[in-house]
């Protein structure tokens, strides 16, 4: 009895190939059924995310099962077997176990330490389990992988620091206001990054006010999508008193918000902290405002720099993480070999 994984990911295959092998959620059930009908592996599970497609399997007859699985993937992706084999990795235990633990913990992701993958692994497992494609081994393996992911998060700092501009902006806002529930966010401009930041803040309970000078309809449409309010550009100053976070992201080629203006706002706001995020290039907010008390100004470079630093920090955690993964792999293999000792001995 052996545990295998066949697959490709962002490290081994280009996007064009990953696209061909990608499995949409609604197709998983059908593909698992076909795999079952063809008796490819005794237990089987498909994991497909934007950066990887993997087939996990358990079988006694290693060579035949892997060959059948490769043919199946080639057939599904319509990529000839030879080309596919060049990019495909095939791992057997304990490497396959270690690989899954790394994947589930986000150590193998493009953004190291991301948490979305843990949910995707869980969903893939639940789908296979629901369709009765998993058995004792894959049940134990995938449940353990989710626990390993949790252990890694609690015992290392792999997920402690955010790496996307939007989540860093939210973190900073939380360091100023504590909780974003009820915090007023005013967004001047409807750029892509500012929309993403606003959405992330709205998800945390912030109340958005969208200001647009040129495309009021776009602002109104965005506001309705995120349960906010759209206001015309010439009205924004009259609403500034109630605002806690101001995001500027217009295409204007000049500074729109000047230091004396913000000084006046701060007086009217009784010096309540004001978090200003300038996502525009060229910048929309005069840098001199950062000297004002209780004004916290960040531009796109500042946020990107923090993201880069945090990425480096996550990388520095990798050694500890892999050590933990190796230990957990050893524990799992001890259990697996003990449990299936008789079958293993029979095979050998």
């Amino acid at each position: 009895m052996e545990i295998f994984v066949l697959g490709l990911n962002h490290k081994t295959a280009p996007l064009e190939l990953r696209e061909k092998l990608s499995i949409p959620n609604h197709k998983t059930q059908e593909l698992l059924r076909v795999l079952g009908e063809r008796r490819i592996f005794d237990e089987r599970l498909l994991l497909s995310t934007c950066n990887r497609t993997e087939l996990y399997g358990v079988d006694g007859d290693a060579g035949q099962a892997v060959l059948e699985a490769k043919k199946f993937l080639s057939e599904y992706s319509r990529v000839d077997l030879e080309t596919l084999e060049e990019k495909l990795y095939i791992l057997r235990q304990p490497d396959s176990v270690e690989h899954l633990f790394s994947v589930a913990s986000g150590l193998d992701s493009m953004v190291i330490g991301e948490t979305e993958i843990t949910g995707q692994v869980k969903d893939a497992y639940l789908e296979a389990h629901k369709n009765q494609q998993t058995g004792k081994v894959l049940n134990a393996l995938f449940q353990r992988s989710l626990r390993v992911a949790k252990t890694l998060r609690s015992q290392t700092e792999i997920g402690a620091r955010k790496v996307s501009v939007a989540s860093i902006a939210v973190d900073l806002a939380e360091k100023i206001f504590g909780n974003l529930k009820g915090v007023r966010v005013m967004v001047i401009g409807t750029g892509e990054v500012s929309t993403l930041v606003t959405k992330t803040m709205t998800a945390k309970g912030a109340l958005p006010l969208i200001v647009s000078s040129r495309h009021y309809e776009r602002a109104a449409e965005l506001a309705s999508r995120i349960n906010g309010e759209a206001i015309p550009y010439d009205e924004y100053e009259s609403r500034i008193e109630g605002v806690d976070i101001l995001i500027a992201s217009t295409l204007a080629a000049r500074v729109l918000i000047h230091e004396p203006q913000v000084r006046g706002w701060m007086r009217r706001r009784h010096e309540r902290p004001l978090f200003m995020i300038d996502l525009a290039v060229p910048r929309n907010i005069e840098t001199a405002v950062e000297k004002l008390d209780n004004v916290y100004l960040y531009n796109i470079d500042d946020l990107s720099e923090i993201a880069e630093k945090n990425r480096a920090f996550r990388k520095s955690q990798l050694e500890d993480c892999f050590r933990l993964v190796k230990t957990q792999t050893r524990y799992f293999m001890d259990w697996f070999l003990k449990e299936f000792d008789a079958q293993c001995r029979e095979r050998s």
């Binding site: 402690a160 620091r161 900073l172 939380e174 360091k175 100023i176 206001f177 504590g178 909780n179 902290p273 950062e290 209780n294 916290y296 100004l297 960040y298 500042d302 720099e305 923090i306 630093k309």
Partner: peptide
């Protein structure tokens, strides 16, 4: 301390450990 960390635009580990300004 927290305020100067946030104003520096490069908040470090101290900032992570400290509570929010509001609190």
């Amino acid at each position: 301390l927290q305020s100067s960390q946030l104003k520096s635009r490069h908040p470090g580990k101290i900032s992570l450990e400290l509570p929010s300004l509001e609190r």
